[in-house]
């Protein structure tokens, strides 16, 4: 573990921070185009964040310290989760600090404080959002872990760098288990990042909100951190999906050329994923809250099938 590798980890974190708003803007833009609108410019999220960081921060009389600490904890835990995921290069030391189960733990930590912040002000909407978020996440987390376990059992490791390495080393293998795990993880990602059909990031009606209801009371730099964390989370799931299941192009050596190729590969894959997301969101309608469990149940089933087909088809006895 030398210094350049750790520098690369920092660079990756920086790329996540800078790239996450772009990905969101890209999805919005493609979606607008699909709906025959022009849509906001790609720089819009950056401008929003910049503006929010300069705005005065309002906190309700009834809020406690948890409300003020939550944005920082949510942001920090999401960013740390991002640093674990291989973005440009596969063999990075950050993956040894925290494996994929810790990644799930980081996301859970952020969510815990997000939900607490929602309940802190003492209005009905916050509690509503928290309650719904905890329901969705409670059902999504086992599905996510099952999908991840399929990978981990194939690679015999929960270290994401080892998983990616194993993928690269074994070349192109059509694994039914990966197919199912991928589909399950995609559904989980949709639910966890608050996209249609589970939640609508663009909604303005409090009664239908999940994520937005929890951060309804936030303003100024607190809101900016919360928004940024949500954008990071979307990119995190995106990178997890494209780089763990389809790692080709990722740098295995730390040379400028390899890293450049890695950046181009991951950018291309993410843009493509963004288009797919936009298409899916245009075609689907938001579900009722009580349809969401069925959706997540399906994700769980897919992850379970992935695991079973790994055991039955790929290892035998």
């Amino acid at each position: 573990m030398n210094a350049s590798a750790w520098l690369l980890v920092l660079l990756q974190a920086l790329l996540f921070l800078l790239g996450a708003p772009l990905l969101v803007a890209w999805v919005k833009r493609v979606k607008a185009r699909l709906q025959n609108r022009r849509g906001p410019a790609l720089s819009q999220p950056y401008r929003d964040l910049y503006k929010l960081f300069g705005k005065e921060t309002l906190v309700a009389h009834t809020a406690s310290g948890v409300f003020r600490a939550a944005p920082y904890i949510v942001f920090a835990s999401t960013l740390l989760a991002c640093t674990i995921v291989p973005l440009l290069a596969a063999r990075l030391p950050a993956a040894a600090v925290a494996d994929v189960i810790v990644l799930v733990g980081f996301l859970a930590l952020g969510r815990f404080f997000l939900a607490l912040a929602g309940m802190d002000v003492g209005t009905a909407f916050g509690g509503m959002g928290s309650s719904r978020e905890m329901l969705v996440s409670a059902l999504a987390e086992p599905a996510m872990l099952l999908a991840v376990f399929t990978l981990a059992m194939t690679a015999h490791s929960t270290n994401l760098a080892s998983v990616v390495d194993h993928q690269l080393a074994s070349g192109l293998i059509l694994r039914p288990s990966y197919l199912f795990a991928l589909m399950g993880l995609v559904l989980v990602a949709v639910a966890e990042t608050g996209r249609i059909p589970v939640d609508n990031p663009a909604t303005h009606l409090e009664l239908t909100m999940i994520h937005e209801a929890m951060i309804l009371e936030y303003s100024g730099r607190h809101l900016a951190l919360m928004e940024w964390a949500a954008q990071l989370k979307l990119m995190l799931y995106g990178v997890l999906i494209v780089n763990v299941f389809l790692p080709w192009g990722i740098a295995t050596r730390i040379t400028p050329a390899a890293l450049g190729l890695g950046l181009a590969a991951v950018a291309g894959k993410l843009l493509l994923l963004g288009v797919l997301l936009a298409v899916a969101e245009t075609g689907l309608a938001k579900m009722r809250l009580f349809r969401a469990p069925q959706f997540l149940n399906f994700a769980l089933l897919l992850a379970l099938l992935g695991l079973l087909s790994h055991v039955i088809l790929e290892t035998g006895a």
């Binding site: 293998i173 059509l174 694994r175 039914p176 197919l179 099938l305 087909s309 088809l313």
Partner: peptide, 13 residues
């Protein structure tokens, strides 16, 4: 053969 496996798994799905 791997592709057959994937398709068989899809049938189950």
């Amino acid at each position: 053969e791997q592709a057959v496996f994937v398709l068989a798994a899809l049938v189950l799905f």
